Computed example of a mutant assay.
Amino acid sequence: MSHSPILAQWLPQLEAEGITPPHFQSAPPPPGNAPLPPDRVRQENIRERDFRITALQPDYTGDLWVGSWIGLTRIDPNTGRINARVALPNYNIGALAEDRSGRIWVGTYQGLVRVDPRSNEVTAQNFSLPSNRVLSLLVDHRGYLWVGTDRGLVLISPDQGLRMTTLQALPGVSANALATDNEGQLWVGTLEGLVQVNTASALIMGRMSNIPGGVVQTLAKAPDGNLWVGTISHLLVVNPIDKRIVRTIREFDGRNVKSIRFAADGRVWVGTENGLYNLDGSTGAILGQIPDLPSHRVLSLSPDTGNKLWVGTSEGLAWVSQTTGLVRPHLAFVRNPPPIY
């Protein structure tokens, strides 16, 4: 039997004292490339964390709800302080909306849930939908909740938490984006243009299939009543009354438009796959582009929230001062926060 060099130098003294030296069973070392269990778990968690911010919703208290692929978080938009993290049955959030009672509705890729802001807890879930992949949410002028999925629309009574009607035979199939016009009618952005739906009867009133780019990804109603439409390759202005395209913002031809929101001053913020832009809401002229965001891929916007524009990107959350234009990432929602000096 052979001993290690360290043990061998102590053998004479051990034998003189009548102590039997220990015998260690040799074993092969662990594989060098395989991480130990704690390290392996940590690596898997890092791979699973997806920092995309897909939905932003201010509430009646002034707080901002942040929907991401790592959960639902409630923050103070004035300070950025996290007020609550809500435990959800799943994490892939696609849309947020606030109903007239102040409850937060959360559309995920695994269904719809309702959160009570007083307790920050889920109070309703497991709704019967044509698909559990929720892409858009909107509360109409009557207070009813429209739920857009990748297989049609559902109308829900928020107070009772009950499904009222389903519109599965939706031209363009997928309800990617929702907006209402000045008449209170619903407009749905689909894979094949725009569809107008009567909010009282849930019947289709009209359709615009001549939308350049075809796939509508975001909608916003302007102060003048027109609809701004973002597609995978164009930014358009549509008159909902006569269902015609009023203007095409040519600077966005070929650009993938992901989010559109109007600020209180009438200017419009447009988030694309390649940057965030500020436009004149009357003329469509580009006033500027915002640099230094966590990612150029802008997914969600919330202007005039805590005197800031909050920006959700594919790599985290940031805010833009609406007075100075200063950009700062929210360090709790970015993958690689910048160093603090």
Rank of each mutant, 00 (worst) to 15 (best):
R100S: 07
V122M: 06
P130C: 02
V134Y: 00
V122Y: 09
P130H: 11
I104K: 06
D140R: 12
D140M: 08
P130A: 10
L137M: 09
Q125A: 13
Q125K: 05
T108E: 05
L138V: 05
P117T: 14
P130F: 12
L138I: 00
Y109R: 05
N126D: 12
Q110M: 13
R114F: 07
L135A: 12
G111P: 02
V122E: 04
R133S: 14
Y109D: 10
G111I: 11
L135I: 05
A124Y: 01
P130I: 11
G107S: 10
S101A: 12
R114A: 15
Y109W: 15
R133Q: 15
G102L: 15
V134L: 00
Q110E: 11
G102A: 13
T108K: 08
P117D: 09
Y109L: 10
S131A: 15
L129G: 10
S131G: 06
F127E: 02
T108F: 11
L137H: 07
L138Q: 09
G107C: 03
T123D: 05
S128T: 15
S119W: 01
R114W: 00
P130R: 08
G111K: 05
V115T: 00
L135M: 05
Q110H: 07
Q110P: 01
R100H: 11
S101F: 14
V139L: 04
